[in-house]
Amino acid sequence: MEREIILKRILASKSESDFLFQANLQHKLMPREDLSLMIRIFLAKKFLLERIPDETESIYDLAEESLSLLLKKDVSEINELQSGCSGATSAMAKKVLFLMALQRALNIKFAEEAVADIRTVESMTEACYHAILQQNKENGGA
């Protein structure tokens, strides 16, 4: 029963964050601080966090915290819960899935080689900000 409640929360969260992004993408270029806040709210929603993370936090640590909340396990056991044979940790997997969702939400594309270098919320915001700038430039926007 608890799992159903969590699942409903995730689904509800997804709709709400989509709304947020839809509303704010009316602006072609939002200030970096606003973009940072939007991304952090999106991250909090996706990860089921009960707080908005700040920019200095590690995405891997946040992913582990999210998995812990989701699975009701201790954080130290997260790395043993990987589902594949690739050698990727659960935190790595969660980070990548979030970045893929963020790409869709912002309609941007991260360079494949740059993804592994995104380690903090700040570096993720920077990568998004520059990708949006680049896109605006290519589209002849402001």
Binding site: S86, G87, M92, A93, E112
Partner: peptide, 8 residues
């Protein structure tokens, strides 16, 4: 993307 994470 995950390969990049594992490599790093």
């Amino acid at each position: 993307m995950v390969n990049g994470e594992i490599y790093k």
